[in-house]
Simulated assay, not measured.
Amino acid sequence: MRVVVEQVDSLDDPRLADYAHQTDVALKKSRGSEHGLYLAESLLVMQRALAAGHRPRSVLALGGSVDDAVAALEAKPGGADVDGPGDVVVPVFSGPGDLLEQLTGYVLHRGLIASMHRPALPTVEALLADARRVVIIENVADPTNVGAIFRSVAAIGADAVLVTDRCSDPFYRRAIRVSMGTVLQVPWGRVGAWPATKELLAASGFHVAALALRDDSVTLRAFAARAPERVALVLGAEGDGLTLEALGAADTIVRIPMAHGIDSLNVAATAAVAMYALAD
């Protein structure tokens, strides 16, 4: 991989298409990329993406961030020292701050944005093979909550995250930003219908614990006191909570007792509390 700094002076430059107010959906369908693209904002997030083995397509940077971007790219294993006919060039675009603000829609200051190739997702079987704790996010539509859950998973401790088809994409820009790039570190994959998902979990020895306020539930403290070796925590959508299919697939319904008439926590807060209770 060779890193080349290139100056840009026009918003019409076709090389900047990845950054020109593209939606997350459009980036996911981008041509020239097997699995689509995502945007990594800030040096820290780009470094986490590179450390996870994700391939950069280009970087948009300002001021001192140009040098930071080049250094980070060249520090990638097999970075700028690779040469030859199969060499891949990664451009680092730089230009006037006001121009780049118009392009991206906000002030970059001394920051950067990297256009990254989405990796192929691992299979559910591979994710479960050596895991003890997994988090399943069912139909959570808000990317802010998805990102916050991933950040808690990375910080407090779970081995993998599984998301349903109707869940917001963890590679969406806001989810990556809120997670501080941890969605690029935590292994995750997608699951389908509950009968097949339950079968996979059972075959791997997982006890399914669904978080919900129900009369037949047990408290989180009681469940944690005698938690099985392998647990899959299931978290539901904002407002609607878990579906009947998810509740039906659960081995145990677990609740977090509430005070002052409060009937629920934010789903990201629930994830953090539950994971902490089950931490070794």
Rank of each mutant, 00 (worst) to 15 (best):
L60A: 07
A120S: 09
V66N: 02
R133Q: 11
V45H: 00
Q102M: 14
E245C: 09
M116P: 00
L121C: 04
A26W: 07
M180Y: 06
Y38F: 15
I137C: 15
D12A: 11
R166I: 07
E74M: 05
L242Y: 02
S33Q: 08
S152Q: 11
F171K: 01
R226K: 12
A202E: 07
C167K: 06
R15Q: 13
P257Y: 09
I149M: 06
T197L: 07
R55I: 04
A203D: 06
A274H: 05
D169A: 06
V107G: 08
I137E: 06
P228M: 07
M46Q: 06
R15D: 12
I256Q: 04
M46W: 13
R31L: 15
S30N: 09
L99Q: 15
H54N: 06
T182K: 03
A227E: 05
G147H: 01
R177C: 15
I176P: 09
L73G: 00
M275Q: 12
R255W: 10
A203G: 07
G63T: 14
S10Q: 09
P143L: 04
A232L: 13
I113Y: 01
Q102D: 15
A203P: 11
H109A: 09
G84Q: 02
E41S: 02
S217I: 12
D215I: 11
A141V: 05
P122H: 03
Y38K: 08
V90F: 00
N266A: 10
A196H: 11
A249L: 10
R48M: 10
G64E: 01
T123P: 06
A203R: 11
P122I: 01
H21I: 08
A148G: 12
Y106P: 02
M1E: 03
L108S: 05
P195L: 03
L235I: 15
D215N: 08
D9Q: 13
A114H: 00
E34P: 14
D263F: 14
P170W: 00
L44K: 07
P56D: 03
D68G: 10
M180K: 10
A51W: 00
